[in-house]
Design a protein around this nucleic acid. Structure first.
Lengths: 213, 213
DNA sequence: AATGTTTCATAGTGAACGATATGAAATCTA
DNA sequence: TAGATTTCATATCGTTCACTATGAAACATT
């Protein structure tokens, strides 16, 4: 039970050679934990809720994921996905406007999925909370900042290439995009359907018309 | 301690004639409770947190406000303010666009007040939570819906008077406005300053240009 | 089959949760 | 001043919280 073995275990790359085998698929139960946090939030989802949703006892949960905070951080990373992949996707879009349009439409789809809770985990799971959970909120905020940085970089490319006017403010445009996305999560939580959210996304993008030729 | 006396007490309109007087100002401690919920959320603010913030013991809190849920609902109404006043204010604006502009700029100011927590209580205090707090989330959602309805009515006025084009979709425009406002709360929580939020509000309004002559 | 290693399910830890019972203290009425 | 009424501060109530000690069970190795 030293630090090294724990590190190796959490890395998930060392298949054990001896001992009783795991009775559950780690990725599978992590997915269920993610859905539970997505539905009910970080602090407001109890260990009892998690064990029930994951189909795993508390000792198994702690052995596999450390503690509640680490489990959430892993679940969030699973939700957020690969950021480099997103950046490449946005780079391949013909314009920043098209990239943002795809992002907002994708958000509308994600927030109204029939197999997942409504809204965005990054927007709702740690919107607020006690001082004890400040680290978790900071981690969620860092994810949002990464998305903001990606947006800013993509917009700057279009400004440099002359597609967007030189007086465009990349940070403000990225902030507005992020605000619309996170706000759409609130609408979804309030029961907005997919068509409504897609309409909001399209209307938000329509506002960009003035920024281009 | 029958239902009638409780009702009269919570109404706050019947000055008691006998008994030991209250040692605190009810509106004053309610304000402090509102700030605590605003800062840390509904479920994630404990009774101990509230009594510390309000400077009132737990028995006094329960005697004055009933229970935690009722205290929050009162605090939320204090936050949300008078809706009819808001509607009159929006009606007096020359156009729906100006009314929305004022609303978003006001949100930018409110979410970055130096004497209040960052962001919007309606957006962050009950973004998610346990099934036990479903009633509270529904009450917060109802407040948002009222705001949405007011926006829709104001937009319809401008469509009827020909200020806005007849193919404008009031619900979508109201949804987008609400999304921007609630999303701005996330930005504020992440540390965005007042100038940044005002810039976002102005840019969101700039998108309306295409909807008018 | 014997041993070593890891996970299993059971049952529990102390602490914090929302909410109260209790009796003294402070006011008004008479 | 005596009695009625209400709020006060203290000390809890039972429950749920995140987390874990313990020993049996299930594998690989020898």
């Amino acid at each position: 039970m030293d630090l090294l073995s724990v590190t190796m275990k959490s890395a998930g790359t060392s298949p054990r050679k001896t001992g009783r085998p795991l009775s559950f698929d780690r990725e599978e139960v992590l997915e269920k934990a993610m859905l539970a946090f997505w539905e009910s939030g970080y602090e407001t989802t109890s260990i009892a809720d998690l064990t029930a949703a994951m189909g795993v006892t508390a000792p198994s949960l702690y052995a596999a994921f450390g503690n509640k905070q680490q489990l959430f951080l892993e679940a969030m990373q699973r939700y957020a996905g690969d950021r480099t992949a997103l950046e490449k996707e946005m780079s391949s879009a013909p314009t920043a406007r098209e990239a943002v349009a795809e992002m907002l439409r994708g958000a509308a789809m994600l927030y109204t999925g029939e197999e997942t809770p409504p809204g965005c985990l990054l927007a709702s799971a740690a919107a607020t909370g006690s001082p004890e959970a400040a680290e978790v909120r900071a981690a969620v905020a860092a994810e949002r900042q990464e998305l903001r940085d990606i947006l800013i970089r993509r917009i700057k490319v279009d400004i440099a290439s002359g597609i967007m006017p030189s007086n465009t403010r990349p940070a403000t445009l990225a902030d507005l995009t992020l605000a619309v996305a996170q706000g759409m999560s609130v609408l979804a939580r309030d029961g907005a359907d997919r068509a409504s959210l897609l309409a909001v996304a399209d209307m938000a993008i329509a506002g960009w018309s003035i920024s281009e030729g």
